[in-house]
Amino acid sequence: MTSDNLQDALQIDAAARVRVLSEALPYMQQFAGRTIVIKYGGAAMKDSRLKDKVMRDIVFMACVGIRPVLIHGGGPEINTWLGKMNIEPQFKDGLRVTDADTMDIVEMVLVGRLNKQIVSLINQAGGSAVGICGKDGNLVTARQISQKDVGFVGEIVTVNTNIVDSLISRQHIPVISSVSADETGQSYNINADTFAGEIAAAVGAEKLFLMTDTPGLMKDFHDLESLIPRLDIREARQLIDSGIVSGGMIPKLTCCIRSLAQGVRSAHIIDGRMPHSLLLETFTDTGIGTMITA
């Protein structure tokens, strides 16, 4: 490459960087001071390189004035530890069968290992994260779901956001594991998507992000061109009723609909396998996943 060609390339690269920053600025201004809730899981949690990028993106958001709240599950690591304890993971109707021994491992993984790891990564990236679970500060009160044969699987009864409000008002990033308890202190394992949706509604979040292992909401799972970039809550309900959306996407979409009905401004189903998917969906005109609005 000649010196003239190199100079041209550098100028083009500089112009592209300026366009990216210019495009992002109105979104930074719009969302400064607003709370967003991110449900973190899937491939983005299992891949260490992706994990580092997600944490840096969350710190970036905090640095431009957004108030992120991170909710996490940890299914694959729970399965790994169950295997170490010679306990076979079991599921019924998409729910993890959670007996007393399994509940102990769920708490050890979610409240202990993963929560502390995520907090450490955010702090290493320059953020200020604080790890909690649904039990802390009576954040979430739970009860056993009606399907008794799955054990200690819970549903949310009440949400008290005092502890979360206190943390975000002091510019901390709450990192919350989806374990809670009932009034007697019995622990329950709660679906992380559902947990995130209820927290988002309770804190009056601007946005709810569900990081998944798919590009977003698609009419045909096998056809990337069928991605639905944007729809409203009425259209989302129609997709479920018509059977176009099926399988594991139904509870995710239902979670989004419920949070929107309770006041969340928009919900986003994004591909956690794509580096910087949070930033692309938040700060660009086109986005990269599915945005659902009220």
Rank of each mutant, 00 (worst) to 15 (best):
V153R: 01
Q147H: 09
D104P: 11
V59W: 03
G83R: 12
Q124E: 15
I105K: 05
N138T: 14
G74S: 07
Q117H: 12
L70H: 02
A100P: 06
I71S: 05
S166W: 06
G112I: 00
E88F: 00
R56P: 02
D57G: 00
G131H: 04
G131L: 09
Q147I: 03
T98L: 00
D104E: 15
I58T: 08
M55G: 07
I118D: 10
K135Q: 15
V119E: 03
L167N: 08
L110A: 01
L95G: 00
G151I: 08
A100N: 11
R170V: 00
E77P: 12
I156A: 06
K84D: 10
Q144P: 09
G94N: 12
G131S: 04
G131P: 10
V157R: 10
V54M: 00
Q124Y: 10
E77C: 09
I78G: 09
P76N: 07
D149P: 06
V64I: 13
Q144M: 03
R170F: 07
I132G: 00
E88H: 10
F152A: 09
N160F: 10
D99E: 04
G65Q: 01
G83Q: 14
I87E: 01
V150G: 00
I168W: 03
G151A: 01
T141L: 13
Q147T: 11
A62M: 06
I58R: 04
D104A: 15
M55R: 06
S146G: 11
M108Y: 08
D136L: 04
R67T: 05
V54F: 03
N79L: 08
V140M: 02
Q90T: 09
L70A: 01
